[in-house]
């Protein structure tokens, strides 16, 4: 790892200023992706601005929404009784990320800022129609994800919270890579204020996307049988040593049916 200056801002605005002062400065959230990236020398920041200790973690439950602070850990999300009860698909998703030790450090805001094309959270955010709250503005899920490792965030913008409306039904199913446990295909289904939505991760080169053919079929009939005949084209899906694009296309059908059946 290349060396860098480690800075602990006193506030979010302080952190923004540190980023503005140095174009090579980078934010550190839970570090469960970023520290491995630094070890591989894939990134060479001059300054690391640590977001721990700014009070950005915590979960609040209101009648119409659950708000999750950007620095809230996967472990806190999976074990929160309100999330377990009101958005069970999200609690289940968090419990499947990494392992216990990773879940004690990794954060929702960090994952969403990174937007790994195999990350789980983007599917929940997109399917439920959540809002990404930053220090500057509120970004609807539909505008937030812009392709592999790309988001609507400006370079000096910080995710402070994520607001989830409460879906009537939600569920997540994930076909895990047997070694890394990353999603080879992950499917989040939701029926709620944003309508009926099916969001897919791990499968496409551009990251998370909505499966509109599945959504239309489920809008007519919310059941696994309703989407049985839908064929997902393999165009634009990932092909690697773990699975071909055709195999991933098949998995999307299987995992979506399981997700609907279990919702």
């Amino acid at each position: 790892m290349y060396d860098f200056a480690f800075q602990t801002p006193a506030s979010v605005s302080d952190a923004v200023k540190m980023l503005a002062d140095d174009t090579e400065a980078k934010l550190l959230a839970g570090g469960q992706t970023f520290i491995p990236v630094l070890k591989q020398r894939l990134n060479k920041p001059s300054v690391i601005v640590d977001l721990n200790g700014l009070g950005l973690s915590g979960i609040t439950s209101a009648p119409d929404k659950i708000t999750i602070g950007g620095m809230t850990t996967h472990n806190a999300i999976m074990s929160n009784p309100d999330i377990q009860k009101r958005i069970p698909g999200l609690a289940k998703m968090a419990s499947w990320i990494g392992d216990t030790q990773v879940r004690h450090r990794g954060t929702m805001g960090g994952s969403l800022a990174n937007n790994d094309p195999s990350a789980c959270y983007p599917t929940a955010v997109l399917a439920i129609g959540a809002t990404i709250v930053t220090d500057q503005r509120r970004i609807p899920a539909d505008e937030y994800f812009q392709g592999m490792f790309t988001t609507a965030l400006a370079p000096e913008e910080i995710v402070t919270a994520i607001e989830f409306p409460i879906p009537e039904k939600s569920n997540y199913e994930k076909f895990r890579n047997p070694a890394s446990r990353y999603a080879m295909v992950g499917v989040f289904v939701a029926k709620g204020p944003a309508g009926i939505r099916v969001a897919i991760t791990g499968a496409a080169q551009d990251g998370v996307f909505r499966h509109t053919a599945m959504e239309q079929a489920l809008a007519t009939n919310w059941s696994a049988d309703a989407i049985k005949g839908i064929v997902t084209p393999a165009d634009g899906l990932n092909s690697d040593i773990h699975a071909s694009a055709e195999y991933r296309a098949h998995l999307i059908g299987v995992m979506t049916r399981r997700a609907v059946a279990g919702a």
Partner: peptide, 26 residues
């Protein structure tokens, strides 16, 4: 050294973490 094996697990304020994937300054 890639946060997979868990040989480096220690407790921080009572929670288990992988000490190879946390900066000392943190």
């Amino acid at each position: 050294d890639t946060s997979q094996c868990g040989a480096c697990v220690v407790h921080i304020d009572g929670y288990s973490v992988k000490s190879c994937t946390m900066l000392a300054m943190q």
